[in-house]
Design a protein around this nucleic acid. Sequence first.
DNA 1: ACGCTATCAGACAGACCTGTCTAGGGCAAC
DNA 2: GTTGCCCTAGACAGGTCTGTCTGATAGCGT
Lengths: 203, 203
Amino acid sequence: MTPPAAKATPAARTPAGQARDKILATAFRLFYAHGLRAAGIDTIIAESGVAKATFYKYFPAKDELILAYLEKVDGIWTGQLHAAAEAAGPDPAARLVGLFDALASACRRDGYRGCAFINAAAESVSGTRVHDRTVAHKEHIRAWIRDLADQAGAQDPDRLARSLTLVLDGGLASGVLDADPAAATAARDTASQLVAAGLGRNP
Amino acid sequence: MTPPAAKATPAARTPAGQARDKILATAFRLFYAHGLRAAGIDTIIAESGVAKATFYKYFPAKDELILAYLEKVDGIWTGQLHAAAEAAGPDPAARLVGLFDALASACRRDGYRGCAFINAAAESVSGTRVHDRTVAHKEHIRAWIRDLADQAGAQDPDRLARSLTLVLDGGLASGVLDADPAAATAARDTASQLVAAGLGRNP
DNA sequence: ACGCTATCAGACAGACCTGTCTAGGGCAAC
DNA sequence: GTTGCCCTAGACAGGTCTGTCTGATAGCGT
């Protein structure tokens, strides 16, 4: 019936090669805001303004998209931690405390909903790639903090790093509940105490 | 075709009034092990050995079951915390540290998968009843810890309670990743430092 | 013995979810 | 111009999910 020439809008085309980025950006937003399971492929595709076939070309399965999302989160969050630490100056001890400023900034951002990795782990069973990726992320962070503790001359860098990651994870976990900046301030404050104690200084 | 009298096994019947408990017990197991969304109603019903109509009689919607589950978790976990605190003796300061033994016990249990509330919050959006219930739980815990800190004569009970809940939540969050008992020990150790510092004693 | 209520078994509806497939349209390089 | 690639639109299949409904049965109190 409808003549082939009378087709509707000729399709608002996505420039070649940019489709993947658009998908990943949408996935980032929806996965973080609603959770991995709650965000459906169809919604992500629709909000990306991309065709279904294009989506499946770049991400053969939802799991691949989730892993790409975690990769992106890792890069962003690690970058923010490093930046906050460096902003505290050259002293490693100051950096150990300063990195907690990244937590405060994060929880003041609109739509903050805690740590994407902790949230992802809560939705995935142990042994899956998603879960493993989360564990790897947390280990990287702890290794980095341990290095800082070492440079700061901590009496027991492992112990101090453990304590600090506990506080950091605690602050992130609180963020899932209420993005209360007080939790972040308290985390920084607690970290400061722990660093002082871990360096053998009595505050 | 099939004569009505030739029915199969006459039904392994659940004693009247016990159906709700069986459902809740199964839900407890499946929700915790797989997550709120991953555990489907059909599976819970099948594993409870209960008829679908019976299920919906007690829990008109999945949300009701989830809330009942959280209620149950709250009772159990709060009980374990109180018990661990009391086991540490009558001294409030010792209790503040002793409650962390509940964390160590929990993460040594088989199938430990972190804090059911944090996991639930990760799957629910802010503003839902599930989310609110989680926030309420965390506030109860913090209020109780604050009371203990008060009794212990902390210089700043609020601040100490904040710190301790951060460490507790951090330990629980780590549990989603790896049920590493070292994290629990480190949490107790960190708590001990913080309590000592919060009481004005230099360790 | 009778009836009431709680339970069982399972079909069914309607929504949603992932992933495949067909058919065609625009763009650039050759 | 033609060829090849990347994109669009959307139907479709097969599965899972929640929740409703029917009809029959078991056990308890009276």
